[in-house]
């Protein structure tokens, strides 16, 4: 079974739907066993199909929602978009001018840096999250993936390995790219081993009830 035939006769889609004949199925399975590119194509198609079903299921409750109110229609219109863009440009220009004017006065003051660090949770792969200790005035924003299941709110606890809590934040919701952002002042991240405990909660649960979701290690190394 060659690629052209597979494409022309929608073999991948029919395989995923389970509608190939036994002979076609055998031929196709033998084809992808020996062809990594075809296997990848198959996996992409399967993920796409699953993603559509998932998206549909996730959007299902929202379908019964009442129609959009009138002002929302205006906000979503192209006319509003153009006007908002003009206001944004004007604001950008004026703040740039103010910044240039004030630059001289900023020269003598302390400058605050912020680092944004996405954390990785990889099972059995050691600790990939190692950062250099931030300066005392520096802020570190740790980005944490909330995982597969979605919760109404999240609780994040940053603790040292000996158990001492450094920071606890309740009522977090995912923001940038669906990640949870945890802002930590520089002097809180002294060198050492830490753990970030993530828990999820639901609106209809008691305020004290949360479900632990993950524990992500973080190592802060001394600055070179």
């Amino acid at each position: 079974m060659d690629r052209q035939h597979i494409r022309d006769t929608d073999v991948i889609e029919r395989y995923l739907q389970g509608t190939l004949s036994a002979a076609e199925e055998q031929a196709f399975e033998e084809a992808y066993l020996a062809d990594p590119q075809l296997l990848e194509e198959l996996e992409v198609a399967e993920r796409l199909r699953a993603g559509f079903k998932d998206l549909d299921a996730a959007e299902a409750p929202g379908r019964a929602a009442p129609p959009r109110v009138r002002w929302l229609g205006f906000v979503a219109s192209a006319r509003y978009g153009v006007a908002a863009s003009l206001v944004a440009v004007a604001a950008l220009v004026s703040t740039t001018v103010l910044y240039v004017q004030d630059r001289g006065s900023l020269a003598g003051s302390a400058v605050t840096h912020t680092r944004v660090l996405p954390l990785v949770s990889v099972r059995g792969a050691g600790n990939p999250n190692e950062i250099a200790s931030p300066a005392p005035g520096e802020w570190t924003v740790l980005l944490l993936d909330p995982g597969f299941d979605s919760f109404d709110t999240y609780q994040v606890v940053l603790a040292r390995r000996d158990g001492a809590e450094v920071l606890r934040l309740d009522g977090l919701t995912p923001t940038y790219e669906g990640l949870l952002a945890l802002s930590v002042p520089g002097d809180a991240l002294v060198p050492g081993d830490y753990e970030i405990r993530l828990a999820g909660g639901r609106r209809d649960w008691p305020a004290t009830q949360v479900l632990e979701l993950s524990r992500t290690p973080l190592t802060v190394a001394a600055r070179p």
Partner: peptide, 27 residues
């Protein structure tokens, strides 16, 4: 289902949520 999401394919590290989001972007 959870285990099936975790091993074997070229997109192992892509979560279900990321797949859903990618479909949203695509649409």
């Amino acid at each position: 289902e959870l285990a099936a999401d975790e091993r074997g394919g070229p997109f192992d590290n892509v979560s279900r949520e990321q797949v859903r989001r990618a479909v949203g972007v695509l649409l």
